[in-house]
């Protein structure tokens, strides 16, 4: 270990852990990639996936589609024994993504989108908005006129987006205030937890897509945010009081310095005079 202190090695290993995923040999990726000229449709998901947030976080083909990414033989790699499930039918998509995103799935299943999907496959599933392989970090911009008005009027969606946006703004503002108190060294653990829970409650709602319900739930979140606001205000008052005390003390010491200096100068003047 000499020459490479423990912590450098540690940092290197930690940093490498993410990208390493992609570097380990993955036969799904290599095999599909190779077919980019003969059958571009088979290769496209690989290139799409490489731009996605799943790729960034080390989520690979087999995490969703099953199969064995170590196997060299395609029949083994995509066998039932290896748990290969391939591409889901449209009505299976919510459960397919819901393997990991279970809370979102539960909310989605209560939506008009889900109802229409299960009835006659007319409703949009996860992939219709988030794409199948190029998923990006979620943003409210996913709710936009181009996407929504493919099926219905944008009006409702625009209201929903605005409600979510203003909620997000309030949550972010509160986050900054709590963070400031944390930096001041105040114990804000319970406030941080409460805010985290509120943020989750607000975000999970998005997929219910029922404007009335979302507005009423957001109202409830906002009320709890108000209660949190009171606690944060108390903390801010504490910080404010400390600053006041500090200001008084600084002024006091500066006056003390001035007086001591004047006293010193007077003493030195007297000493000087007495010598002549």
């Amino acid at each position: 270990m000499r020459g490479y202190p423990f912590w450098i090695v540690f940092v290197a290993v930690t940093l490498a852990a993410g990208p390493l995923h992609a570097e380990v040999k993955n036969t799904c990726v290599t095999c599909h990639e190779e077919q980019k000229d003969e059958d571009p449709d088979l290769a496209a998901p690989v290139f799409d996936w490489q731009t996605s947030i799943h790729f960034e976080n080390g989520i690979s083909c087999s995490d969703c589609h099953g199969g064995n990414p170590r196997a060299e033989d395609e029949d083994v790699a995509m066998s039932e024994e290896a748990g290969f499930v391939g591409a889901p039918d449209p009505e299976e998509v919510p459960d397919f993504c819901g393997k990991c995103h279970s809370a979102v799935r539960d909310n989605y299943m209560q939506s008009a989108h889900a109802e229409a999907l299960l009835e006659d496959e007319s409703g949009p599933s996860c992939v219709d908005c988030h794409t199948a392989h190029k998923q990006q970090k979620v943003s409210l911009d996913l709710i936009n006129e181009d996407l929504c008005s493919q099926c219905h009027d944008y009006d409702q969606a625009a209201k929903l987006k605005e409600a979510m946006r203003s909620m997000d703004q309030d949550l972010t503002l509160m986050d900054h205030r709590v963070e400031r108190l944390f930096r001041e060294g105040l114990d804000v653990e319970s406030e941080q937890k409460a805010l985290f829970a509120l943020r989750n409650r607000a975000h999970r709602l998005t997929h219910v897509l029922d404007l009335d319900r979302i507005l009423s739930e957001l109202g409830a979140v906002r009320a709890d945010l108000g209660a949190l606001d009171k606690r944060v205000q108390e903390g801010e008052q504490v910080v404010q009081n400390r600053r006041r005390l500090g200001t008084v003390m600084i002024l006091f010491f500066l006056i003390g310095a001035l007086l001591a200096w004047m006293y010193h100068r007077e003493l030195m003047r007297e000493a000087h005079e007495s010598q002549h």
Binding site: F252, I255, G256, L259, A260, M262, Y263, E266
Partner: peptide, 8 residues
């Protein structure tokens, strides 16, 4: 001044 400094 001495008294003032003492007080401070």
């Amino acid at each position: 001044l001495q008294r003032l400094v003492g007080v401070f």
